[in-house]
Simulated scan of single mutants.
Amino acid sequence: MVDMVNDILLQAVLILVVVFMFLLMYNVPQKALSKISFGSRTNLQAKRHFVQGAQLLEKARSAKDGVAASSLAKSAAEEADKAVGLNPKDAAAHILKALALELQGYKTSALDALDVALSPMAVKSLSDEERGDALFKRAELKVAMSRTERVDSAIADLVDSVKFRTDNPRAFFVSGQCYETKGMTVEAKKAYEDALRVQPMFTVAQEALDRLGS
């Protein structure tokens, strides 16, 4: 019994120190993990897989060798899948899976994982700010896939994102880029101005405004 309690405490420390730092670095919802009840053995097992997956993904991102990075990212996705299997309503596990898949170059599958994280089944596990971050990440992926038909969808995600998270200058900046793609110069300028309002030294936003003649 004592060993089990110690094990739970150890997992809590890992979550607060290692995973929380990971979430901060990669714009993953930062409070989702704190809402998990440690009284459930299933939830605890899910969090163990999540912690292992987060650690693997962190190593993958810092790996200099592409083959090693891909292998680590694949293992991270597998751990995320295990966490999802145990607790499919935990949006953080789906987001971890999305990040691992993205690192492997599987953008469409990463987008699918984010869709699940933001679905009615899982989105309730996110705070408003976390939901804003997840929406922004999904919009980023849509833009990165360079498909014109996804621009409107990306804009919709970004509009919702800044409602939940008003202090993310990158969300406003990417909105500006999307509006430019659609030829909506007035809206693009407004988005870049909003980015600068949040972060006055956001150089690329200022350069975009200068380019548009503002």
Rank of each mutant, 00 (worst) to 15 (best):
V2K: 09
V2G: 03
N6M: 05
N6V: 04
I8L: 13
I8A: 14
A12K: 05
V13Y: 07
L16F: 11
M21G: 14
N27T: 01
V28S: 11
P29S: 11
P29G: 12
K31A: 03
K31C: 01
K31Q: 05
I36Y: 02
S37Y: 04
F38V: 05
S40C: 13
A54C: 07
L56S: 14
L57D: 07
E58G: 02
A60C: 03
D65H: 06
V67C: 00
V67Y: 01
S70Y: 02
S70C: 02
L72C: 02
A76H: 02
G85H: 09
L86P: 08
L86D: 07
N87M: 11
D90V: 03
A91C: 13
A91M: 09
H94R: 06
I95S: 00
I95F: 00
K97L: 13
L99R: 07
L101P: 06
Q104T: 08
G105L: 09
G105K: 12
K107C: 02
A113R: 01
L114N: 06
L114K: 08
S119P: 04
S119L: 05
S125I: 09
L126Q: 02
L126I: 01
L126F: 01
D128I: 08
E129S: 01
E129M: 02
E130W: 13
R131L: 10
G132I: 10
D133C: 06
L135I: 00
L135P: 00
L141C: 05
V143G: 02
R147P: 00
R150S: 15
V151F: 06
A154M: 11
L158H: 10
T166F: 11
N168T: 00
P169G: 12
A171P: 04
F173K: 06
V174P: 00
V174D: 02
S175G: 10
C178P: 01
C178A: 09
Y179S: 03
G183K: 10
G183F: 10
E187Y: 05
A188I: 10
A191W: 12
E193L: 13
E193A: 12
A195I: 04
L196I: 15
R197F: 15
R197P: 08
V198H: 15
P200H: 03
R211A: 04
G213E: 11
